[in-house]
Amino acid sequence: MDASLNAELSALLDAHRDRPGALLPVLHAVQDALGHIPPAAVPIIARALNLSRAEVHGVIGFYRHFRSRAPGRHVVQVCRAEACQAVGALELEAHARRALGCGFHATCADGSVTLEPVYCLGNCACGPSVRVDDEIVGRVDARRFDELLAELRDAP
């Protein structure tokens, strides 16, 4: 496990390790490649950047974007910020929890979707806003959410 992970990470580390303040670019690269930052990657990253494991672990824990566990096949973020609240975001959030049968930072039973909160996607005139992987969707009500969910559950 460690050896194969080492090999997988070495190209990423080589691409970014010499950048000033390289840790965030490295963590982004790892998560983009693996979908998450497995705990076993922490000592490898720490060694490559001459940091302590605690420093790397601390940075991963600080930022909401980084995750240590593999997510579902898709990540759905529901905006909780004020502009979306003004047009029904909290009702949408409650619906999302019911529809997926899970809360925030959890994955629904069939493994298709991980639900996360987000504070603002910059789509504040067209809320409630939802991010599905790298795509932002506006004016999402319960019906639209169910449509999106059906598409995601059918998708690979």
Binding site: L24, H28, E55, V59, F62, Y63, H65, F66, V118, Y119
Partner: peptide, 23 residues
Amino acid sequence: RLGAGAYICGEETALLESLEGRR
């Protein structure tokens, strides 16, 4: 450079810390 989901990094000194690779 990309942030990673932390509102506080809009504060300039927190942003600098983040750019330097820290919390």
